[in-house]
Simulated scan of single mutants.
Amino acid sequence: MRSHETVPVPVKRLEGNDDLPLPAYATDGAAGMDVVSAEERVLVPGERAAVSTGIAMAVPDGYELQIRPRSGLALKHGITVPNTPGTIDSDYRGELKVILINHGTEPYKLRRGDRIAQAVLSPVVRASWLEVHELDATQRGEGGFGSTGFGAAEVEPIRKA
């Protein structure tokens, strides 16, 4: 059995949410904790909503809580987190809300207690800018979007019949 480092994260159940489970890992190998909805609502196709979870927390300094989609909801119903990953900063103390969007073709009913997202506690490394006049050269250089994929000679144009 693997040993996992744990980091204590103070969490507060908001009033009226004692019946809901706290975020929890579903299996020993899970990287993300399941987060549940504290509300019932219907998301129609194309609709976005900030869904209540009924909890607030104090993410430790030097960490962030990343909010990610649940793969089953995305595949089966088109329900996802549009700002993936969402970031909960260490100085935020309000209710955790998960922004969901329905990319599916049917309305989706969220029920209280449904698993709606995953939360991953991640260390944060802060950048410090070092302004320079020139950057070091690389093989890629200034090649942007798609520049590491197929070369122009390898791409076959699509022809209409």
Score class of each variant (00 low, 15 high):
63 Y>M: 03
151 G>P: 01
147 S>D: 08
101 I>P: 01
161 A>D: 15
121 L>V: 07
65 L>R: 01
113 G>I: 07
70 R>G: 11
122 S>H: 02
114 D>K: 12
114 D>P: 08
64 E>C: 09
35 V>A: 04
92 Y>I: 03
87 T>L: 03
138 T>Q: 08
16 G>P: 11
82 P>F: 09
36 V>E: 01
155 V>E: 08
91 D>V: 05
120 V>Y: 02
21 P>L: 12
66 Q>H: 14
157 P>I: 02
93 R>Y: 12
66 Q>P: 02
151 G>S: 13
48 R>Q: 13
18 D>H: 11
37 S>L: 08
129 W>E: 12
157 P>E: 13
67 I>Y: 00
47 E>V: 06
113 G>L: 09
118 Q>W: 08
112 R>K: 15
55 I>G: 00
132 V>C: 07
41 R>A: 15
108 Y>K: 05
129 W>N: 03
30 A>T: 15
61 D>T: 08
4 H>C: 00
133 H>V: 03
140 R>D: 05
6 T>G: 01
151 G>F: 06
108 Y>C: 06
139 Q>L: 07
139 Q>P: 00
101 I>V: 15
144 G>I: 02
131 E>K: 11
86 G>Y: 00
47 E>P: 01
110 L>Y: 01
104 G>A: 05
104 G>Y: 05
54 G>L: 10
40 E>Q: 14
150 F>R: 15
156 E>N: 10
2 R>K: 11
156 E>S: 11
146 G>Y: 11
83 N>V: 02
90 S>D: 10
139 Q>W: 03
100 L>F: 12
58 A>I: 01
24 A>G: 03
137 A>W: 04
100 L>M: 12
99 I>M: 13
48 R>V: 02
107 P>S: 13
121 L>D: 13
159 R>C: 05
155 V>S: 07
35 V>D: 05
132 V>W: 09
129 W>P: 00
61 D>F: 07
33 M>Q: 15
57 M>R: 08
34 D>Q: 10
32 G>A: 14
154 E>F: 00
17 N>P: 06
117 A>V: 04
119 A>G: 15
99 I>G: 01
96 L>R: 01
18 D>N: 14
85 P>L: 05
24 A>R: 12
80 T>N: 05
29 G>A: 15
2 R>F: 05
126 R>V: 04
153 A>E: 15
108 Y>W: 15
144 G>L: 04
124 V>P: 03
80 T>F: 07
43 L>A: 05
32 G>F: 03
40 E>V: 06
21 P>T: 13
50 A>I: 02
55 I>H: 00
